[in-house]
Each structure stands twice: as structure tokens, then as C-alpha cells.
């Protein structure tokens, strides 16, 4: 198989899960579906609306997000905010991310020095 055929799959595997971490981090400040989508794509996360919207509800069901309808404006919007539990999970995930990043960097330098 050529690299063009396998690369998208590997990238998808690697990116899976990063949207959760990013969403939990962004929503420490309350936000609604479309605003989060915009923030994430501006930050460089490739995420589709049809994955993000159901994901928000799933995280809410897990108690990591809480939501509230804001009807002050002409268009009522559902605002999500990261809960205490959500923050705790985010910290664990971010720590793990940092550990993996360091591990990968270390591997790269050790194998690099052997060359």
C-alpha cells in the first residue's frame, strides 16, 4: 500500500481524543456549539460539526460538561461549561499528553544519536 492510502487512517487514529481534551479546555469559558467549532478550527483542530455536536452531549451525559440555555439574545443558544469533574479529567489527559510528547521526543533523540 502507498503512503497516500494509509496516512489518513494513521492521522485519524492519532488525532482521535484530542478533540475531547481541546473541547474541555476551551469550555472552561462557557460556549455554544458553533462558537466552539469556530474556536477549534481556528486553533487548528480538524473537527466536523456532525462529530462535535453529539460529542458535547455525550460529555454532558458523562458529567464532564454542564449546560444551560441562554435566552437573553434573539437566538436562544445552549451554553456548555466544563464541570469540576471535567477539569479533573482534562488535567489527567493533558498530563498524559505531555508525557507521551516527552516520550516521543526522547525516542527521537536516542534513535537519532545512534545514527
Amino acid at each position: 500500500m502507498t503512503m497516500e492510502a494509509t496516512l489518513p487512517g494513521h492521522l485519524q487514529e492519532l488525532r482521535r481524543g484530542t478533540v475531547v481534551v481541546a473541547s474541555l479546555m476551551v469550555l472552561r469559558e462557557p460556549g455554544y456549539g458553533y462558537s466552539l467549532l469556530e474556536t477549534l478550527s481556528a486553533a487548528g483542530f480538524e473537527v466536523e460539526a456532525n462529530t462535535l455536536y453529539p460529542l458535547l452531549r455525550r460529555l454532558e451525559a458523562q458529567g464532564l460538561l454542564t449546560s444551560e440555555w441562554n435566552t437573553d439574545e434573539a437566538r436562544p443558544r445552549k451554553f456548555y461549561r466544563t464541570t469540576e469533574a471535567g477539569n479533573a479529567v482534562t488535567d489527567v489527559l493533558v498530563t498524559e499528553w505531555a508525557r507521551l510528547n516527552k516520550a516521543i521526543t526522547d525516542l527521537d533523540t536516542t534513535t537519532g544519536s545512534r545514527k
Binding site: 455554544y32 456549539g33 458553533y34 462558537s35 460539526a49 455536536y53 437566538r75 436562544p76 443558544r77 445552549k78
Partner: peptide, 8 residues
Amino acid sequence: ELRASIAD
């Protein structure tokens, strides 16, 4: 929610 997101 879906209608609001689409409208946005």
C-alpha cells in the same frame, strides 16, 4: 440546539 447551530 441543532436549529441554533445551523442558523449560526
